[in-house]
Design a protein around this nucleic acid. Structure first.
Lengths: 222, 222, 222, 222
DNA sequence: CATGAATGAGACTTCATTCAT
DNA sequence: TATGAATGAAGTCTCATTCAT
C-alpha cells in the first residue's frame, strides 16, 4: 500500500509507475481476462518486479478494479468531450458522435475495457454501480438527448427514445467487443472494415429515423 | 485409501449425467467465466462428485467445448429451420427470426454462451475456429440471405448486405451479453424490456430498409 | 476376499480367475512397476471388470504381494528341480545350472519377478523375509553346495565359497533384470546375446576356478 | 488467499538450494522409487516448501533427470580419468577401477541410482536414451578398453571383449542394486562384506583371465 | 523504494476402492 | 458372482502474496 504521507520527491521518474502498471494490466486483462493474467506478467510488462506491484496495489483484485475505474473515468471524459457544443442537424451530430467515439475510444486500447466489464462484472459487483454511473448513464444521456433534439426539431420521427438509444449504441459497443475477442483470433475471415460498418449502420438508422417527407432530401448527410 | 466413515449414497444415472453436467457447467461458466469456475462446483451443482465429472469429460477445457458445441448446434438448427421453407414477406421473416432467436436462445441460459465466448475465446484458439465455422458463418448466412431475398423481391432497398447483416445481428447479441453481465447485477436501473427493445430495433431497421414508395404501406407488419 | 468355505463347483471355468489375474498383474507390474500399474488395467488384461478383481484380492497391495509370493514359489520349485540328482563333474553341473536357469526362469516372464523385488521390497518389507527364505537362501545353497562339492573333489581350487557364490549368481540375475529394464527399451544398442554372455561368464569363471595343474585338461567341458 | 496465521521464517539460499533438493530427491527416490516419492516429501527433506522445489525444477520428472544427470556425470568423469593416463599392469587398473567405483559410487547414495533406473526406466523412454548415451556406453567403453589393453599386452588371454565386459560390470552393479533393495531390509542375514566380495570377484576374474604361463607369477597383484 | 526467493492455499486431475444393480 | 458408475483422498503443479535483504 503506498504511503499516505507526502513523499519527498526523490524519485522523479518513479511517479509514473502506477500508471505504467495500470496500462500493462489493462492490456493483459483485455487479452487474457482477469483470472488468466498473472501478477508477475503485469509487473514484467511494466518493467518492474513482482514485489513492486504490491507496493502500489494491495492485491490483484484491487489492481483490476483500479484498471477498470481508471479507464472508465477516461472513457467518460472522452464522451463528454464528444458531446459538447454542437450546432447543426441532429443527424450530423449523431454521425459525428459515432465516428469520433470509434476513433477515440472503440479503436484504442480503451475499447478493451468493455470486454473486461462484460466478462467480470459479476465477479466484481462493486464495479457495476461504477460502470453504470460513469459510463452507461452519461453515454445514454448524450445519445438520448441527441435523439430527443432531433425529434423536437422535426428531423426524426417520434421513435421511443430509450429503446432506440440502445439500438444505436449496441452495434458500436459490439464492434469494440468483437475486436478484442473473436476479431483478435487468427484464422478468422478477413474482418469487416469498422468504418464501413459504422457508415452502413448510420445509413440504416438514419433512413429509419427520418419522417417520410424529408427523407429523400436528407439521405446524403453522411 | 478409503474413508472409514459412512459413504454418501450413490445413484446410477449414466444416461442423464452428461446433460446434467453440461447444464450445470453452462450456468456456472456464464455466471463466473471459465477460469473462475471450479470443476468441483460444476460437479456439485449437478449433484455428483468431482470424480464423476471426469468420467464424462476428460478435462475442464473439454467440458467447456462440449457446452459451447452442444448449445450452439441447437441454436444454429433453429435459425436455419426457420429461414428455409418460409414463404411470405422478408420483413416478416426477419421479424420472426429475431423473436424466435430471442425466445429460444437469447432469453435462455444458452444466451450466456456469447458472454463466455467473448470473454474466453482468446485463451482457446481452437475454440475460435470452431465458433467461426459453426456459429458465426452459418448465422451470418441466414440473415444475409434474408436480406438478399428482400432486396431481390423489391421489399428492401439495396443496402450493402454484409455490413447490414452485422448491424442487424449485433444488437441482439448485445442484448444477450448485457443480460448476463451488467444486466445481471443488482443496483442497475430497472432493465429495459427486451421485447420492447427488439420491437424498437425492428421498427427502426424496417423503416430504414424499406424503399420510399412502399414504406407507408408496410410499416405495420410488426 | 475369496470365501474360505469350500464353494460348490458351479462355475468350473471361473476357478482359473485368480491365476489369470495374477498373470496379468505380473506382466503389468514387471512392465510398469507397482505404482504405475492401474488396477483397472490388470482387470482388463485378465478379461474381467474392475470390481471382479476386488472379489479375489482385497487391495492392490495384496494383489501385488500375491503376485510376488506366487512367482517366488514357482521360482524355488524351478530351482530345486534343477539341482537334484546330478552325478558328474562339478563344472558341468554349474554349467547346466546356469543354462537351465536361464532357460526356465531368466528368459521367462518369471524372470521379471526380480525386477519387482529390487524395485519394491523397501515399500513392502514383509516381502523381504519371504524372498530371503524362498529364493535367496535356497538358491545360494544350491550353488554353494556345488562349489563345495567341486572343491572337495579337487575340481576347483579353494575359493571362499560364500563370496564366490555371489559372484556366480549376480551376473545371471543382472541379465534378467536388464531384460526387463534398459534392455526392454527401444533405441538401445543391439542387445548382447544372453547365451553368449552366459558362456563367456562360464568360461571366465571356470578357468578361474580350476587349479593350475588340471586346467588345460578341463577347459573344454562347455 | 494468504493465511492469517504467522508465517514460518524464510531463508534465502538460492545458491545451495538446487544441490540440497537433488540430495533429498536422490535419497527418497532410491528409498521409495520415483513414482512413490511425493514432491512435497522431497521439499520437506530439503527443508523448503513444496513451491520452492518448483522454483528450481519444472516438474518431478525433470528433477529426476537432474538427479541422474548430476550424480552419473561425476561418476563417468571419475572412471575415464582413472583409465586414461594409467601406466602399469592392466590387472592393477581393473582392480583400481573396481575399488574406486565402489568407493565413489557403489557405496555412496549415488549407487542407488541404478535401482531407480532399473525400476523406472520403462516409464521414461527419454531417460532410457539419456542413460544409454551418458552412462552405459561410456562405462562399457572404459572397461572394454582396459580388457583390450590387457589382451594386447599379453596380460590377459583372448576373451570375447564385449561379453566379458558385461560379466565384469554386472556383479558390481548388482552389489549396488542389492544394497538399496533387499540389503536395505532388516531381517536379512548378516550382509556379506562388499570389499570381500569385490576381492573374491577380482581374484576369480583375474585368475580366469591370466594365460597359463604367467598365471602363478601375477596372482598376487591385489 | 525495489527485489525476487520463499510460501502454501487451492486448482485440476487420477485412481484405488465401494456398492447398487 | 460380476459389473462399472460413483466416490473422494491424494498427488502434481500454479500463482497470489509476503518479507528478508
Amino acid at each position: 500500500m503506498p504511503s499516505l504521507v507526502t513523499a519527498p520527491p526523490r524519485h522523479r521518474r518513479k511517479e509514473s509507475r502506477p500508471q505504467e502498471l495500470l496500462d500493462a494490466a489493462l492490456a493483459l486483462f483485455v487479452e487474457k481476462g482477469f483470472a488468466a493474467t498473472r501478477s508477475e506478467e503485469v509487473a514484467a510488462r511494466a518493467g518492474v518486479s513482482k514485489g513492486t506491484l504490491y507496493l502500489y496495489f494491495p492485491s490483484k483484485a484491487e489492481l483490476f478494479k483500479a484498471v477498470v475505474r481508471g479507464n472508465l473515468s477516461a472513457l467518460i471524459a472522452q464522451g463528454q468531450q464528444l458531446a459538447e457544443q454542437f450546432e447543426g442537424p441532429s443527424a450530423l451530430l449523431l454521425h459525428q458522435l459515432m465516428h469520433t467515439w470509434w476513433q477515440r475510444v472503440g479503436s484504442t486500447p480503451a475499447g478493451g475495457i468493455f470486454k473486461i466489464i462484460v466478462a467480470e462484472v459479476r465477479n466484481f459487483p462493486e464495479l457495476a454501480q461504477f460502470y453504470r454511473d460513469e459510463v452507461v448513464i452519461p453515454a445514454h444521456r448524450v445519445v438520448a438527448r441527441t435523439l430527443q433534439r432531433g425529434i423536437e426539431r422535426g428531423e426524426f420521427r417520434a421513435v421511443p427514445v430509450n429503446e432506440t438509444t440502445h439500438t444505436l449504441i449496441a452495434p458500436m459497443l459490439f464492434l469494440a467487443l468483437h475486436r478484442h475477442s473473436i476479431g483478435a483470433c487468427a484464422a478468422m475471415q478477413p474482418e469487416l472494415d469498422p468504418a464501413a460498418l459504422i457508415d452502413a449502420q448510420f445509413d440504416l438508422m438514419l433512413n429509419g429515423l427520418q419522417p417520410r417527407a424529408t427523407r429523400a432530401a436528407r439521405r446524403n448527410v453522411a
